[in-house]
């Protein structure tokens, strides 16, 4: 499996993604500068976390115009996999590749903390290695992570089982207290209609070794690898 990691000006989890995939999971991983447009070398493209263009204007609002984004749209139409993490999720929403938007968290603070995610659908290419309703321990690090969409979109996401992760308690209960940012329905990650584009606020690349506190993030990468 060949992973391509996009770097926008201001991206910072590019190196962490590379570390998780290459050093921990021994996968091929390369960097894609945001002005590159040839993605033919890759089977899966990652839009990592960070502050693309300083999050100026709105997170992801400027990065969506980078040349690589048009190529990513074509890439998704070839049924290849795209995963946007944190700022990458914001970019995918701004680009219209995923529905909804990520607003400022209700507590109006940047938060970096461990959270629990309940796997809501383990039949996607991003979650096939997870158990049904498995609870993953993965950290968040964001200000604008409150998932918002209109009622019709939410109903469609629910009906099509496109909500992959919800913030939960360690025992898998979906509660307000377990919701770190005020996301509607505790939504932490969703996929597109075709099921080959994932956006999630938590950082699976940071949960890649027990010494860092968890290796649950690897289940997502291993699912992607197993899908090929």
């Amino acid at each position: 499996m060949r992973f391509g990691i996009v770097i926008f000006p201001g991206t910072w989890s590019d190196r962490d993604c590379h570390y998780a995939l290459n050093s921990t999971l021994r996968q091929e991983a390369g960097y894609i500068w945001h002005k590159e447009t040839d993605l033919s070398k890759y089977d899966c493209v990652i839009l990592p976390g960070g502050f693309s263009y300083g999050d100026y204007l709105r997170p992801g609002a400027i990065a969506r115009f980078s040349p690589v984004m048009a190529s990513i749209e074509r890439f998704t139409s070839q049924d290849k996999l795209v995963i946007g993490i944190c700022n990458g999720f914001q970019v995918l929403c701004e680009a219209g590749l995923l529905p909804g938007a990520l607003l400022r968290s209700t507590h109006l603070e940047y938060r970096c903390q461990w959270v629990q995610l309940r796997v809501e659908n383990n039949s996607s290419p991003f979650t096939s290695q997870c158990e049904e309703k498995q609870v993953l321990k993965i950290p968040i690090s964001h200000y604008e992570g409150r998932y918002y969409a209109d009622d019709a979109t939410l109903a469609e996401l629910e009906a099509d089982k496109r909500i992959l992760f919800r913030y939960s308690t360690p025992t898998g209960d979906i509660t307000d207290a377990a919701n770190p940012n005020g996301s509607l329905q505790n939504i932490a990650g969703i996929i597109n209609r075709k099921g080959n584009v994932l956006g999630m606020m938590p950082h699976p690349e940071r949960a890649c070794e027990p010494i860092l506190g968890s290796s649950d993030g690897n289940l997502i990468w291993e699912s992607i690898i197993a899908s090929s």
């Binding site: 989890s13 962490d16 940047y110 970096c112 903390q113 690090s141 950082h203 940071r206 890649c208 860092l212």
Partner: peptide, 11 residues
């Protein structure tokens, strides 16, 4: 909690 203390995968 307002500071990103994990980026870099070293902490």
């Amino acid at each position: 909690r307002q500071y990103d203390h994990q980026v870099g995968n070293n902490t």
